[in-house]
Write a protein that binds this DNA or RNA. Sequence first.
DNA 1: GTTGTAATTATACAAAATTATAATTTATTC
DNA 2: GAATAAATTATAATTTTGTATAATTACAAC
Lengths: 224, 224
Amino acid sequence: MSQTNHRTVPRKPGRPKEGEDLRYVILDEAELAFAEHGFAGTRVRDIAMLAGVNQALIRYYFGSKQELFDEVLRRRGSDISGARHVQLDRLLALPDPPSVSQIIRAYLQPQWDMKQSGPNGAAFVRLQARLHAEPEAHALRLRSEVYDASVKRYIQVLSDALPEIPRETISMRMAFLVGTYLFMLNDLGRLNDLTDGQIGDIAQDEMLGQLVRFLAAGLAAPVS
Amino acid sequence: MSQTNHRTVPRKPGRPKEGEDLRYVILDEAELAFAEHGFAGTRVRDIAMLAGVNQALIRYYFGSKQELFDEVLRRRGSDISGARHVQLDRLLALPDPPSVSQIIRAYLQPQWDMKQSGPNGAAFVRLQARLHAEPEAHALRLRSEVYDASVKRYIQVLSDALPEIPRETISMRMAFLVGTYLFMLNDLGRLNDLTDGQIGDIAQDEMLGQLVRFLAAGLAAPVS
DNA sequence: GTTGTAATTATACAAAATTATAATTTATTC
DNA sequence: GAATAAATTATAATTTTGTATAATTACAAC
């Protein structure tokens, strides 16, 4: 019931028809599956079935389940990281120094856009939240590899915008921020259940604004 | 290397020696294992081995892996929920109406205490973070079952303390709050890596204060 | 057109893991 | 002290699952 069989008629072996990129079909389906069931909870078999592809093809392209997972993460992770840098560059190019809200929004916008971009983008966001809950060494390495650089740059810029707040405090609050938005992006659809349907009518776009306001206030809060 | 064999000499069958509560030993080890590897990533075998117990005994006590998992969650979940109610009652019994910071602290304190209480408490906190990242229907139900009631009560009290902020906004911000603290409690140990070791010297206790300040500012932020 | 190579499937293997059953020991009760 | 029931182990059966190999097809190049 859960797994939709996307392709019933089997493909014939041989050279692929121009444009049919099975490698990407696999990555897309893996993204959806990993987001829903996690790494250990996802079966390579299922990904293959969803992609309408033989199991062995996954091995052919990616080597192992773990490598497939890593590839799923890297593919979009580097996009996000890049977009964050671009957003920050754009902000710093303006004549006035950026406000805290602007910096935060610059950081969140890429994730937000990805989430809005369709089912796969949304799945990837959920996958990140999962990854952040995994204490395994491998997950940690992967997270660092993909995200650390941009976080550090944002901490620097925030420090400049909030000179009265010690840098360690900013670092910590930045960590809080990451937790908040990841959770929020992940849980947004289910937020209604948690709160008795009280926020069902708030538009998606307004929600980002609300989040930014919340985080900006927290980040700029006076120290003791 | 990862799995420590807690008991090498096998137990003999029969009635247990007074005081040796294998049921709890199993729950404790399951808690640690699930927190580290997640539900799907944990093998019943390993739990049995860590608890120094035969696999079949787990089945005997809990029926299935899933039921064991649920039991691990319920055991402490109800403690947390209860403690939150107690904290709130205590606060409301004071002559003055509670401040936002006080309310937040009341909400966080039980989790914080649990985390400090030892390896198993800390593991449980991590486990909750994991659960919040799982979109599966079963995980959702479990979360609702264990936590929803207390959250709703806190939303009410916060609404009273912040009459100028609409209730839907409070609800949403409460959801942000949950995300922030879960992530923080989960990631605290690794926070240093993320921020280049800049917050290594902050005492654990001070960290809770910092978190409360951050969240209180966010919750009380003026609306648009 | 034959040959070679890349992409894909069909099928098989082997390890791992959950579930199941039967046997064994100990305490308790009458 | 015999009987009964509970707790525990040993062992087995079955299902799942990741991995591996061999066979097949199609395209391209010479």
